[in-house]
Design a protein around this nucleic acid. Structure first.
Length: 503
RNA sequence: GAUCUCGUAGCUCAGCUGGCAGAGCAUCUGACUUUUAAUCAGAGGGUCCUGGGUUCGAUUCCCAGCGAGAUCACCA
């Protein structure tokens, strides 16, 4: 086994986990991109380090593949180069026998092209940098790109993401895209002069969204605290405080079901800009997403499933009523709760008695419209009942100034002209309390400190939230949120524990 | 939370109607100094997810549990 190899290596006087730095001076992909046969002389004394990903022994020589952060490159080791003297044990024992797949090695050598035409590093000196003790799955690929023995079990991949990242091609790229998405967005906002802030994750009142929270307890205060389901109210308090643009990119926590689009913790971006409204925010959203797609994928066009999606603005805008009329043929703008209930019946949509007018409209939209919105589309002007934190529509009775952006049949962003009238806000919270009494367990709780802040005055403000995980899913063409989270939530692994309970 | 499907070697998977547990890769031994899914010769490797039941006999059939995936419900 590998532990025996470890001992054998130490017995040879070689430290399998050396301390010294190994300074690389190039990467695999750089060599492959820039190598030209008539300039081979420029590709000498190159130092690379990484994991050994394949081994093809040829007796007194060997081909192998080294994987570094940029990809893989073939390396060629010859016994008489590695061991110029009489003692051939370094090659015979260390390399041939005790070097295993996924061990970390450092090499120095020059580049050449083999008879088969592959750009290869001819190794002149070799160092073991770190020994692995576990056998890793070996993924092989043939000339046509067919993959064999891939490490595919999703459970294993998510539980041992380090293995997934190492052996499965392309997995690391997804997370590079994720990181770039966030930094592109951050730099877009920073250039506008808006301030990145951090607000509490532990909150005494979980406000700003409709969802079940995680509950915890603070010992010395002896109070319950909730992991935030949203940060909206805190960010608006900062607008009250005088910043004219604040945003936060961070984790939210919702104690709800898990599936391929939901993880208990997820990353959201929320931004609030003073003296703006939702019309302006739609333009800003277009520019932002265009810039992000351009920066992450080098194009505004991405492929998601069977659809090609273009993030280039401007995006079509439809009101909620228009969208429903377009996809069902019914004009619901004048319908009351009873008529809507009948319509839902006719459309075979299940509803519950606790649902009010807004919730019914939401149901129709979810059932009949949402999945059809493939290209980025703004849906605007929502019923007031569903959105207690948005400002009433400037001209349309019963509506609020809100938009959601749908892409590939999924909501990706949500925004309002923020409600800054403290009296109206208090009434809206009271409406929510009534909904709660009716049995709507998602209704929002009253937040007195937030109301107090509004009473001190908040400028007209536009706010926007974007689900970062889902945006990354779109940009990378992944169908599940687990594919864009390093460590998606899983049930704890069952370990072999001794039974010690005796009653 | 509901329904369906799956769980066999380190990885990918066969295993028929119930009859001694299988393959490829990986690992180990040997050969091979430009191979590339390297090749050739040999070897080792299993709590068939767990616990019950039916049976002469269960990886296979039945029940329960655990874990995962898909679909749905809810949400972002």
């Amino acid at each position: 086994m590998r532990r025996e190899s470890l001992k054998a290596i130490r017995d040879m006087g070689i430290e399998p986990y050396p301390h010294e730095a190994f300074e690389v001076n190039t990467f695999s992909a750089d060599i492959k991109e820039s190598f030209e046969d008539d300039k081979a002389g420029e590709f000498e004394n190159l130092k690379l380090a990484g994991r050994l990903m394949s081994k093809r022994g040829k007796g007194k020589a060997m081909f192998a593949e080294l994987q570094d952060k940029k990809g893989r490159i073939q390396i060629y080791l010859r016994r008489d180069d590695i061991c110029p003297g009489e003692d051939k044990s370094l090659y015979n024992l260390l390399i041939k026998r005790h070097l295993h797949l996924c061990d970390f090695i450092g090499i120095e050598g020059f580049v050449f092209r083999t008879g088969m035409g592959e750009i290869t590093v001819h190794v002149q000196s070799f160092k073991l940098l770190s020994k692995t003790l576990r056998t890793l799955p070996v993924v092989k690929k043939d000339a046509e790109g067919n993959i064999y023995d891939a490490f595919t079990d999703p459970e294993q991949r998510y539980r041992m993401r380090y293995v997934d990242l190492t052996v499965n091609e392309g997995v690391r790229d997804v997370f590079v895209a994720r990181s770039r998405t966030i930094s592109a967005m951050r730099s877009f906002f920073d250039k506008k002069g808006w301030l990145e802030v951090e607000t509490p994750i532990l909150q005494p009142i979980h406000g700003g969204a409709a969802a079940r929270p995680f509950k915890t307890h603070h010992h010395s205060l002896d109070i319950p605290l909730y992991l935030r389901i949203a940060n909206e109210l805190y960010l608006k308090k900062l607008i009250v405080g005088g910043y004219d643009g604040v945003y936060e990119i961070g984790k939210m926590f919702r104690n709800e079901g898990m599936d391929r689009t939901h993880n208990p913790e997820f990353t959201s971006m929320e931004i609030y800009v003073a003296y703006r409204d939702y019309q302006w925010m739609m333009e800003m959203t277009e520019q932002c997403l265009e810039a992000v797609a351009e920066s992450v994928m080098s194009t505004t066009k991405v492929t998601a499933g069977d659809n090609e999606i273009d993030f280039k603005g401007p995006y079509p805008r439809l009101t909620m009523y228009e969208a429903i009329e377009k996809h069902t043929g019914f004009d619901i703008s004048e319908m009351g709760e009873e008529d809507l209930r009948k319509l839902c019946d006719k459309l075979h949509i299940e509803v519950e008695p606790s649902m009010g007018r807004g919730k019914l409209i939401d149901e129709i939209f979810d059932e009949k419209v949402e999945r059809n919105l493939i290209q980025p589309t703004f849906i605007t002007d929502y019923p007031i009942e569903m959105t207690p934190l948005a400002k009433k529509h400037r001209s349309k009775e019963g509506l609020v100034e809100r938009f959601e952006l749908f892409v590939n049949g999924k909501e990706i962003a949500n925004a309002y002209t923020e409600l800054n009238d403290p009296i109206d806000q208090r009434e809206r919270f009271e409406e929510q309390l009534k909904l709660a009494e009716r049995g709507d367990d998602e209704a929002m709780a009253m937040d007195e400190d937030f109301l107090r802040a509004l009473e001190f005055g908040m400028p007209p403000t536009a706010g926007l939230g974007i689900g970062i995980d889902r945006l990354v899913m779109l940009l990378t063409g992944k169908k599940s949120i687990q594919e864009v989270l390093f460590f998606p939530q899983m049930r704890p692994e069952k370990r072999d524990t001794e039974e010690e309970k005796e009653d």
